[in-house]
Design a protein around this nucleic acid. Structure first.
Lengths: 255, 255
DNA sequence: TTATTATTGTATCATTATGTTACAATAATA
DNA sequence: TATTATTGTAACATAATGATACAATAATAA
């Protein structure tokens, strides 16, 4: 159960190379110095949430992440990470930035893990080296996700974007940059629908947009705009809401 | 003058590690498997141009590129590459995509270089391994650039975007993705000015926009829009143009 | 059964932005 | 001094967006 053992085990599963050593990620089948960090967004109770991992012994929080196998497409590695943490395939994923400053290198969290785990930490361990990380954001239907822990982090859960715990390294900055990227694309690429269930009301959609853009929108203008794009199919009415007219349910259909 | 020697020399200059070997890029001080490709755009004669390298012995063309030193910021490495190829510092640079498919791996050009260079090519040479490449585009004032060759490629020159020679690996696709990214940002980020000299006429600016967006724009609307942004300072008149009213020169000023 | 309530869908008008045409101003040339 | 081509901008038309208003209608309560 020592940390290095976990990694060795993981390495043996994933690697086809011989001679794995603690100080070489290639020995574990990974491209060295290269990581993936995934900012998985969900929408629940009119709030944006992100999936975060935690290693309970140290209480440290981090983004879901992983490494790229020597013979794996970069985007496939991101897909793999996102799928493993959510239980979903076909996740909408987008590269948004590569974090490559030397200053982001901070091995102390991993040293803490290894010490908390009782294993003497090898200062040459590949996990402690500098990493350049490709940032992806993912948009998922909150209701379909099964948050699933890691080989490193033993818990995985949703956190409200406005109340994130302190995160390791530069992960807080990564989350904010992901949100910026999502905002910038929202109108151009019409990707917001990936955060909603298949059927949704217009006010749910508007509430999503307002939350992402962090500003109030005018209801009639929003509805007119959305319907004018002819990307929405009116499905049925949603009854039993409250003491008022029942809203229609809409479904996203590509033009 | 053999290829591997060039690299060994380069490696010795740039690396602080001991024990350099041909099969390890870390031996040369670089992060292995990670490259940078730079799409440097210029604007000349109402045409978009890109800087391309050539290794004359093989006639192969490629994008300017480079590798990331073990203790260098990723963005600094891109800056270094762009600066070395243009002679300019303070180049507007933007990450636009990471090219990480396994299928892009194609060592044949580098094998050709090594063979053309007369050195027996070592099949384990680090240059022949798979690379994940971070794509940057750069916007420069064509008139200020001094195209400068590489340690690998012995020529560097401008090529009209619509008449690119065949490029190695997936570099043609990288150029087109860069252009897409530039287009998408043009209105939001007002970065077009980086492609013009300090002072320019309105019709030069419009011509630039038309070339990048690949569509005609209406002159009065374009002028009204640009002036309305209040990012342009009217500097002077440009005389001796032709048999017509002299246009004003404008200069970009941040708001 | 009927009034009340809150929310929805959309019409309407106001305002702003953009598309389009037109024309006077003016450097260089003939 | 007339001609030419291009510039700067006015003027109008059209489209997009901002803002207000109101009828329609599910659920609840009287």
């Amino acid at each position: 159960m020592a940390f290095s053992n976990l990694f060795e085990a993981a390495g043996k599963i994933m690697s086809n190379t011989n001679n794995p050593t603690e100080s070489s990620s290639e020995g574990f089948g990974f491209i060295p110095h290269l990581a993936i960090d995934a900012v998985i967004f969900g929408f629940h109770n009119n709030q944006l949430k992100v999936l975060l991992m935690q290693y309970s012994k140290t209480c440290l929080h981090a983004l879901p992440g992983g490494f790229v196998l020597l013979t794996e497409n970069l985007n496939d590695a991101a897909k793999r990470v996102a799928t493993e943490r959510t239980g979903l395939s076909n996740i909408y994923l987008e590269q948004f930035y590569v974090f490559g400053d030397v200053a982001r290198h901070d091995p102390t969290p991993f040293i803490s893990f290894m010490e908390a785990d009782g294993s003497a930490h090898n200062p040459g361990h590949w996990l402690l080296q500098r990493f350049i990380s490709v940032g992806y954001f993912g948009l998922v239907d909150f209701t379909l996700v099964t948050p699933t822990p890691d080989k490193i982090f033993d818990s995985c859960d949703w956190y409200h974007l406005d109340a994130l715990p302190p995160l390791i390294q530069d992960h807080t900055a990564i989350v904010h940059k992901a949100l910026q990227a999502l905002r910038a694309m929202l109108d151009d690429k019409l990707i917001g629908f990936n955060l909603l269930p298949r059927d949704f009301t217009m006010s749910e959609l508007q509430s999503l947009y307002e939350t992402i853009l962090d500003k109030k929108l005018l209801r009639p203008a929003f509805q007119r705009k959305m319907l004018g794009l002819s990307i929405l199919e009116r499905v049925a009415k949603k009854f039993s809401g409250g003491a008022h007219k029942a809203p229609y349910l809409y479904r996203f259909v590509s033009k």
